[in-house]
Design a protein around this nucleic acid. Sequence first.
DNA 1: TTGTAAGCGTTATCAC
DNA 2: GTGATAACGCTTACAA
Lengths: 349, 349
Amino acid sequence: MADVRVKRPTIRDVATEAGVSHQTVSRVINGHANVTAATRERVHTAIRDLSYVPSPMARALISNRTHSLGLVTADISDWFFAEAAAGAEVATRKRGYYLMIASVEDAAPDDAAAYLRLMLERRVEGLMIARPSLPLAVEQIRPDPTTAFPIVAIGSARLAGVTVVDVDNRQGGFDATSFLIERGHSRIAVLVGPEKWPSAVERLDGYRDALRSAGVREDAAMIERAGDWGLGAGQAAVARLLEAGTEFTAIFAHSDLLALGAIGELRARGLRVPEDISVVGYDDIPIAAFGTPPLTTVRQPMRAVGELAANVLLDAVGWDVDGRHRDGGSPELHLLPTKLVVRDSVASR
Amino acid sequence: MADVRVKRPTIRDVATEAGVSHQTVSRVINGHANVTAATRERVHTAIRDLSYVPSPMARALISNRTHSLGLVTADISDWFFAEAAAGAEVATRKRGYYLMIASVEDAAPDDAAAYLRLMLERRVEGLMIARPSLPLAVEQIRPDPTTAFPIVAIGSARLAGVTVVDVDNRQGGFDATSFLIERGHSRIAVLVGPEKWPSAVERLDGYRDALRSAGVREDAAMIERAGDWGLGAGQAAVARLLEAGTEFTAIFAHSDLLALGAIGELRARGLRVPEDISVVGYDDIPIAAFGTPPLTTVRQPMRAVGELAANVLLDAVGWDVDGRHRDGGSPELHLLPTKLVVRDSVASR
DNA sequence: TTGTAAGCGTTATCAC
DNA sequence: GTGATAACGCTTACAA
């Protein structure tokens, strides 16, 4: 097995090959003016012949720019975050940057700080943080408040000094609930996601808005906290609701998994969906369309969220032609619209 | 907004602060001998006072090592690959390396080459490739056969010259089928995944092995190619089987999604699971446990696969103390065992 | 239009 | 033990 580190050609090798100075080669590479077409051509052939590739390390050293972004996300094996990460990755690459993804589980909050430090050491030029459930400790990232390190939070709490890209959860909750109301439902239970997630709180707000604007009285018994986003939590929540004797004709679940769990539990108790109980989910995960019945749900454009986050961040790390850093302006809040996907889990009454 | 690129302290700043030469600082940082405890202490305080962090760019430039690995994967929003990626990420980080993840969809094979080139340009020291469905074009990556660039394939075809880390799909297929046979089934249909995926072929081989070693005659009518891994394909495959009049009492589906689709279709046609038809899936995706009935399936340790792949790769990029590259030896095949998870979708007859 | 010199922040080599 | 000095491969002045 030969040595991995074969001696690669340098800019000087290209120079001698083309019979010019290494500086001229640099000019050609960086597309500077003041090079004869002929010389340019010679240099290009030399580059091709030697299959020369500029060293990004050397470039980074002198320019102090790594052309890379960091993404710290909650568990990436969650479809939801994976989608956003995939979107961010593609957008980043499109603009000639690289993305370092660190997936750190909520269970290990200490890791988060370590990861962050790591990325900063690596001199990423900006950071995306997609850990909605954890309070974002900006101080951890920006120890010196005078240095403005570009940060974009994905789907996180609205924090001072940080630009946020998220889905309009309030609107999503509003739409889901309104749809149910339009279909004639007024006793609508809501399966609330874990409230340390801002998105759960916002969806609940949307639910309340919808009731209020339709003149439906809110009933505290209808609000069931699931504690978690999963199927098991959905089953348990519905069980509690039923056993408490709460009467309802529809459920708005804060996630598709909750909805699926709820449907399972309803069935197990001999209730039909949607004939007896209508259900609306949230997320539009891939299996939502294939359940029985196919689930009416609120689609979140997570890929678009990831893409937008990356682009916003890249704008913030951009430089003006004169080499000065472009002012990032004040932090913004970008809310992407959700879309209600109507399938068969809701019946009119 | 202040400039992002604040002037960071260099090794020389630390040197003057500590009243030594920058070289001594370097010695201290790298734990070289021949430094008095007293000087070492002074340097350390200076480092802390200035909160100095060595520049990875400069280090990379001189050592020609980037301390980073690349991972090119099929769509990362697929739980399956995301799991492996998460495992690889953690293992990589544990050993002080960084991971560049590129998620490239099967639909865009041209992108794959571009991504690869990108990572190579970035001077990753090794590459993991997790795109089982695409024939691995090693030549693309190793244009010069004399240079041995460390590569590990995850769950890919067995290719000459490339170390592979995968799950033992043949064993998995064998176990699933054997379990069904033990439960008294002999007419076992198999829903075959897309055959451009080696894993599908191997699972089918395992199925055949199991029939053979139990003395059950193979019936070509039982072998139904699903064409794809998804729910829809599972529905369609079962529909075809039923409409062809094939009689069977059990199904071995090559993925949980296929199994779930199959169950849905069976139900839609008035067949009960597992009373009429037993079903075994493959993957143990999160929802498998929550279906009705909870799915008996073959668990694949994808996280472990990712971890192992990273560790094998890191071993291959390792250096000996004398600074020479350690010989990677001949390519190996690492097969991780699957585990049959018994739940309620199989009945005895 | 082109070439020369300096320097980015580190580590390795060789004196002292 | 410690400190100059020279790389690493590139880009940005400045000179010719």
